[in-house]
Write a protein that binds this DNA or RNA. Structure first.
Length: 515
RNA sequence: GCGGGUGUAGCUCAGUGGUAGAGCGUCACGUUGCCAACGUGAAUGUCGGGCGUUCGAAUCGCCUCACCCGCUCCA
């Protein structure tokens, strides 16, 4: 990473603090790793992002690839759910045992279930790992061993030992049960990224509960409730915005990897035969959306996953992609903003199996006269990551300005849409400004500032990313017009004071997408 | 988890054992005539935190926390 990009992230963090976007959580006590607070400007920015998402997803008027209306309803589910939810979803699996991951096959194994095969007395060659007691896995390892030694190894030559006993050097020459390359197995480690708590006063195993690590499961567990109560018909979606928690090993990169974060998730339910076209459609839709709120150009990419990195349930599906942004701390690489995944019918099936109400999780399609588990296309976005991307994208150094930097937010997400200034605080100008301010603030987040020089007030608004300033001067009292100062160009034009609200409406809602 | 760096006012920093400072910003009053103007005045500090050494610690030692960077990791 170059020095300039390093410097820049520090500058962005400093501005976030200086202008009230983001603070460290509980800072007066020294902060806490992985938790961040939003200040007055930050909460407006993040809320604008979430409102834009909700407005476009839930209240949108899109037509899907099959010609169907894109019908979406919302939910707001609890953070603490019945712990069985997380057993069904796979989040609790092997939680009390050390686990080993394979970087090649993406499989996860219980460390105490893995054994190593080698030839007695031979310490130089590769070690082949298999799942203890699993005949297929053992046979596979034996075959790999034979191939490696270019001969058939007799049973009595075989030496075994627990995988957990291996040193780091030995792990480096080990080949995983489902791998071809050596050294793809991680060291055994306890693996539970869920925060735990207890319901009720008694703290024992039976009262244990988890803070949700994703919002999606609240949607899946309510699937039949919504089908029964909302008259929705496939294809349709269920959307949720809410907090999720992951006890990350290494929170890092400002708010990018936080332990408490907010997700904007949509689960879109479709007939299995239409998965491919809906997946492709959502992928393009979501990519275009991020562009529309101001993430332009080379910093935003859509990256289709390789087959190798797909989750097990997605292997046979239509695909998975990430929408990624080039953050200063990932440059020249990218960091994930949103994942769009075809999850097939994995989640609904899992819950059907675990909850014992299998039929309830299936959908009866009147038109097709068919009962089936719908497939799911899941666009899952991070609200905090999105907010951070907006901040990074907006940050624009400009040595020619008094502020040395300005925040180039799209008007739709800008925390403050406009500021109203009397040019000087006399001759009736403050009164006119006050009247305009009161009129506008009913509808928009606007600021009024009477004090100090006009240049200083413009500079402050540049740093907060306010796109427009309306200045009332001596002539305004007679010609009923104000000067609009535009943030990005610093240009000025004069418009009628009774057209200010229309001007803003046009800029905020009718503003063209970033090029 | 490993390694490197940083931590003094909102920001940039000075202060290397003896009364915590400067510039910018912020606020108040005055002045003002479109880009951090000017004058006068004011407020602002657990010197990241704790323990220790010392008559005395921002300064020395130990521990710890947080942030940034490079690895690792990211179900």
């Amino acid at each position: 990473m170059s020095e300039t990009t390093t410097k820049r992230m520090e500058d962005i963090v400093a501005l976030c603090r200086r202008r009230g976007f983001i603070f460290q959580s509980s800072e007066i006590y020294g902060g806490i790793n992985g938790f961040w607070d939003y200040g007055p400007n930050g909460v407006e920015l993040k809320r604008n992002l979430k409102d834009a998402w909700w407005g476009d997803i839930v209240h949108g008027d899109a037509t899907g690839p099959t010609g169907a209306d894109v019908k979406v309803v919302g939910v707001d589910c609890t953070i603490i759910m019945n712990p069985k939810t997380w057993v069904a979803s796979g989040h609790v699996g092997g939680f009390n045992d050390p686990m080993v991951d394979c970087k090649e096959s993406k499989s996860r194994y219980r460390a105490d279930h893995l054994v190593c095969l080698g030839v007695k007395g031979d310490t130089s060659g590769q070690i082949f790992v298999c799942v203890d007691g699993d005949d297929d896995s053992t046979a596979k390892a034996r075959k790999k061993l034979d191939k490696y030694l270019k001969r058939t190894v007799a049973d009595e030559e075989i030496d075994t030992c627990p995988f957990a006993d291996l040193s780091a050097e030995e792990r480096a020459i080990s080949v995983g049960p489902d791998a071809k390359e050596q050294g793809t197995l991680t060291e055994p480690r306890m693996f539970n990224l869920m925060f735990e708590t207890h319901c009720g006063a008694i703290r024992d195993e039976s009262s244990k509960a988890y803070l949700r690590p994703e919002t999606a499961q609240g949607i899946f567990t309510n699937f039949n409730n919504i089908v029964d109560s909302s008259r929705v018909k496939i294809p349709f979606g269920i959307a949720q915005i809410g907090k999720a928690f992951r006890n990350e090993v290494t929170p890092r990169n400002f708010t990018f990897r936080s332990r408490e974060f907010e997700q904007m998730e949509l689960e879109f339910f479709i007939h299995p035969s239409e998965a491919e076209e809906w997946y492709a459609w959502w992928r393009e839709q979501r990519y275009a959306w991020w562009k529309s709120i101001g993430l332009a150009g080379d910093n935003l990419i859509l990256r289709e996953h390789d087959r190798g990195e797909l989750a097990h349930y997605a292997k046979e599906g239509a695909g998975t992609c990430d929408i990624e942004y080039r953050f200063p701390f990932t440059a020249p690489g990218f960091g994930e903003l949103e994942g769009v995944a075809h999850r097939s019918d994995y989640d609904l099936r899992q819950h059907a199996e675990h909850c014992g109400k299998g039929d309830k999780m299936r959908y009866f399609d009147q038109q097709r006269n068919e009962r089936y588990f719908p497939h799911v296309i899941e666009p899952s976005a991070g609200a905090d990551r999105g907010t951070l991307a907006l901040l990074c994208e907006a940050y624009t150094p400009d040595e020619s300005r008094a502020s040395k930097v300005y925040m180039k937010f799209h008007p739709r997400v800008a925390p403050v849409k406009a500021a109203i200034f009397p040019l000087v605080a006399k001759d009736g100008m403050p009164e006119v400004a006050e009247k305009l301010y009161k009129e506008l603030r009913r509808k928009y987040a606007v600021d009024m500032d009477v004090k100090q020089s006009i240049g200083k007030r413009y500079a402050r608004m540049d740093e907060a990313g306010t796109p427009y300033c309306f200045t009332i001067d001596g002539d305004s009292l007679t010609d009923h017009a104000v000067t609009v100062r535009e943030r990005d160009t610093q240009s000025q034009e004069r418009i009628a004071i009774d057209q200010v609200a229309n001007f803003l409406a046009d800029k905020i809602d009718g503003a063209p997408a970033a090029s």
